[in-house]
Amino acid sequence: MKRLLFITCAALCGLLFFQGKPTEKPAPSPYLDAELPAEVKAVVDQKCYGCHNVNSKNEKGKAKLDWDALTKMKKAKRMAAMDEINEVLTEGEMPPKKFLENKPEGALTEAELATLLAWSSGKKKK
């Protein structure tokens, strides 16, 4: 009888790990390393890649932008995607407000935003 109780308790505790949102971050993309400047990659890994990757459970995020695919695109497609990233960031649409309500630490700092904007505008540093 005691044993049954113990097993039930253990099972319940085990269930806790299945609940809610996955806290584990996906492994950083191997492609990003080669293609993105280090400071950009650092921000992307931390603030964007969680939803925008090839295995993302966030279907909308994955459909809109997949960083793994982005770095493998040919140049014209990549420029188009970067222009869209630039626009979405300029208009403050990403990360989504809804997402930040639950995860305020996911917001971009001013410096991070500046890094992404400078990179996505495609302008070379002089």
Binding site: A76, K77, M79, A80, M82, D83, S121, G122
Partner: peptide, 10 residues
């Protein structure tokens, strides 16, 4: 030019 490319992609 970048925006033109984006518009073409769209």
């Amino acid at each position: 030019t970048t925006r033109m490319i984006r518009k073409l992609d769209d």
